[in-house]
Amino acid sequence: MATENSEYTLPHLMVTAAAREIADGEVIFVGMRLPMLGFFLAKSTHAPNAVGVYELGIVRDTVAPEPILTMGDLPNLCRAQWLADTADLMGLLQQGLVDASFIGGAQVDRFGNLNTTYIGDIENPGTRLPGSGGACDLASLGKRHIIIMAHERHRFVPRVDYITSPGYGDGAGWRRQVGLPRGGPSAVITTRGILRFDPDTCEMMLASLHPGVTVDEVLANTGWPLRVAGELSRTPAPEEAELAMLRRFDPKGYWTGA
């Protein structure tokens, strides 16, 4: 893919889309991989006053002084705003003081429930995945969360095999009914487009197509009859300035290479 002047990769497009989900001044629970780069990009462009919370016990309001690959890399601790206990940061989340978080997944369903634990039957699993980490907490307690994942038919299923991180359960009203205090997924950024949730039914809808992707291609890679928003938009390509930033944050292309 290319802008007028420069080539970009699919991860570049997804990171840029993730950054645009962050508003200035928000408190963001920052996840690994693309979300971390998305947070750095937002901080360096339209959201300079966003604050980053990292579950291992870091709060920082600046981008790490050197490129990092994982959130525990020492540059991410250096001159942090606060180094603390995981439970302190989970407390911020549980009180409702975190605006948004980002999580990845292996399997998602039409109501945004996410599975990173078992594919197949629990008693006789086909695949065992790493598990929740903090993802269940972010999905349960944040004001909203954004899901980032590959858009394949075997991953976009009518009903996940295991709810690791709760979305809207079986539809409107479910979160309140099970006792969750707030929140739910606001967007799913995939390798093919961006999906959002109908405010009335809580069902996932296609909202934006990435450059070069067709509606049919998205439908063919979704395991239920996906609704398409009336006003379908086209995901904007990253701007030159954004690409320059991303090359600085991930100079070797470990996360954003082709």
Binding site: T117, S140, T164, S165, P166, G169, V178, L180, P181
Partner: peptide, 10 residues
């Protein structure tokens, strides 16, 4: 207040 409605319970 975490994990309500999740399959961690299972």
């Amino acid at each position: 207040r975490t994990a309500l409605g999740s399959d961690l319970y299972k």
